[in-house]
Amino acid sequence: MSQEPLIRQSIFPQTVKNLPEQLKTGMCIIINGFLDINCAKFVVDLVCDRSPKSDIALHIKPVLSRRYIVRNCRIGGQWGEEELTSMQKFSLERNKKFVMDILLAEKEFLVAINGNHFCGFIYRIPLSFVKVIKINGNLSINNIQYEMIDIYPRPSTRPDPIQLMLGGVIESPSSSSSPMRTPLAAVLPQGFPNDSELQINGYIKIVSRTFFINLQNGIHTWPHPDVHFHLKSISSPAFDNQTFFYNTRSNGVWGRQERANIYRFTPATNFNVVIQRLKDRYSIKVDDQLLGEFKFREKVDKINTLYIQGEIYINSVYMRSIFQ
């Protein structure tokens, strides 16, 4: 006998539970569930009361058939602007367990699926108004837990991170010709040693507006790690010109932004970015052309993570000695 009728019975009517009385920054709502084999979509709502017309502070609707997650808010019976985009790959699958974490951060909800940060949603309703969680759809809920956490995503749920050693490489598996998607995060167990370089080979998407590369202290999303070097590329209205910016972030504050040279990228082509660590500065090259230099603003010995995000694909990442 199929278990489908039992699963359906367990989810109708809605799962409705009161949230803890005082919601605080750092609290994580943890939903452990199982998606029915016929699940097309489901809904998780954080609402202000139990009435059907209640304001909804956070509306999360994964649509499995189209592999995206809708986020929205309803105030006074009116829905706001939907948010759909995410840099993270859709990872929910029918007939499998899942874990959804909803972190209450300082200014937004942060949502992780199966240990990977998926999206944020800025508060449009004060957090103090949120009282109830409602879940509906063709799924079963095993439990809903609440924890105060220091790091998000929770280390116990995150997949083992990629590691990049000096002389090492990260690249797509030999069995796959597809490039790697961003965001891409790699732990640097040896840090970013002096007289070494990172070489990032990627592919510019046909429609690409921005991407950035961080050398930072920490692989977590929240609290925001200190960023010892931030290289950001933004396309101009002409599209084929990219403007690069350098910066750092320390103790929650971004520093003074420095502008680099303008570089011409061709859409739908490969590119190569090289970041060299010298005695007191970084040297940055794009496609073998010197883009500029950026002097250290603080000690860089705490770098332990490479983080790349944006509208690009990654073919490979190398870390090697400059003199190799």
Rank of each mutant, 00 (worst) to 15 (best):
S2R: 04
Q3V: 10
E4D: 08
L6C: 10
V16D: 06
V16G: 01
P20I: 13
E21I: 08
T25M: 13
G26E: 08
M27Y: 04
V43K: 02
L46T: 05
R50M: 14
R66K: 14
G80K: 01
G80T: 11
E83Y: 07
T85A: 12
L92G: 06
K97L: 11
F98N: 04
I102T: 03
E106W: 05
N116Q: 14
H117E: 11
K134H: 10
Y146H: 15
P155C: 04
Q163Y: 08
G167Y: 06
I170D: 04
P179Y: 09
P189H: 05
G191H: 02
P193F: 02
P193G: 10
Q199Y: 02
F211H: 05
G218K: 02
P225F: 02
D226W: 01
H228M: 06
K232P: 00
S233M: 14
I234D: 09
A238F: 07
Q242F: 12
S250M: 12
S250G: 05
N251F: 05
R259L: 12
R259P: 01
F265T: 07
A268H: 12
A268L: 13
T269K: 14
F271S: 02
G292Y: 03
K302Q: 13
Y307T: 00
G310M: 05
N315C: 07
S316F: 08
Y318S: 04
Y318M: 05
